[in-house]
């Protein structure tokens, strides 16, 4: 099977298919995006343009869940992913999973994923997708992805690391700066993907 090239995005509308119960479809969408976040952490990491170190796309999955599905379903998709990690599936990069992850220094970022996808969903639904021009959508989308996918996630992750490791907040914040370039690139890609796909699937967020 071959993947679809960019220009042939299918015309089949995702919403409004006759007779499809929307409750069932919402549940399935949540499950598929939860699995997509997991899959993005399972495949071997890739190198992205400017950054020489290979990174996984897991946080991009989190941003995409909010940007594609909106606040409620996006947050539920991330929550489902986090629940599967807590239940023990080795879905994080390096095959980590289980409750030890939450007790460890990076547990706050996982909790932040849930809040981050919620914030991105709100911003996309009520701000980004109501912009008319493509340029305005891209700018608003990037800002939203940075606010939800970087600021909110770090706002959970940095104090958590400081508390768990007993280190000062400043040290913890400096430590997280190493992830910033990669996360900004992921926010950019998320925006480009979300704006492109929303153009062909306009009914995705009701």
């Amino acid at each position: 099977m071959h993947s679809k090239p960019l220009e042939s995005s299918p015309e089949i509308p995702v919403t409004g298919a006759a007779g499809t119960s929307s409750a069932t479809k919402d549940t399935v969408l949540v499950a598929v995006f939860a699995a997509m976040i997991a899959a993005m952490g399972l495949v071997p990491p890739i190198t992205l343009g400017l950054i020489p170190v290979p990174i996984t796309l897991q946080t991009m999955g989190v941003m995409l869940a909010g940007a594609m599905l909106g606040p409620v379903r996006g947050m539920l998709a991330t929550l489902t992913f986090v629940a599967l990690v807590a239940a023990g599936l080795p879905l994080l990069s390096g095959g980590r999973g289980g409750l030890g992850v939450f007790a460890g220094p990076t547990g706050g970022y996982l909790i932040g994923f849930i809040a981050g996808s919620l914030v991105i969903g709100v911003l996309y639904k009520y701000w980004v997708l109501s912009r008319r021009s493509k340029a305005a959508r891209l700018v608003a989308g990037f800002l939203s992805a940075v606010i939800g996918g970087v600021l909110v996630i770090y706002a959970f992750g940095i104090p958590w690391t400081a508390m768990v490791a007993g280190i000062p907040m400043g040290t913890s914040a400096i430590g997280s700066l190493g992830f910033l370039p990669g996360d900004l690139i992921k926010a950019g890609i998320t925006t480009a993907v979300a704006v492109t796909v929303h153009r062909s699937y306009s009914g995705l967020m009701k």
């Binding site: 993947s3 679809k4 090239p5 960019l6 995005s9 299918p10 089949i12 995702v14 298919a17 479809k25 399935v28 969408l29 499950a31 598929v32 995006f33 997509m36 890739i46 992205l48 796309l57 991009m60 995409l64 594609m68 890609i189 998320t190 480009a192 993907v193 492109t196 796909v197 062909s200 699937y201 995705l204």
Partner: peptide, 17 residues
């Protein structure tokens, strides 16, 4: 990465549908 992510999202939406 865009060339990978766009088809991935579209195919995910299709699988859900």
């Amino acid at each position: 990465p865009l060339a990978v992510a766009v088809p991935l999202v579209i195919r995910s939406l299709r699988i859900a549908e």
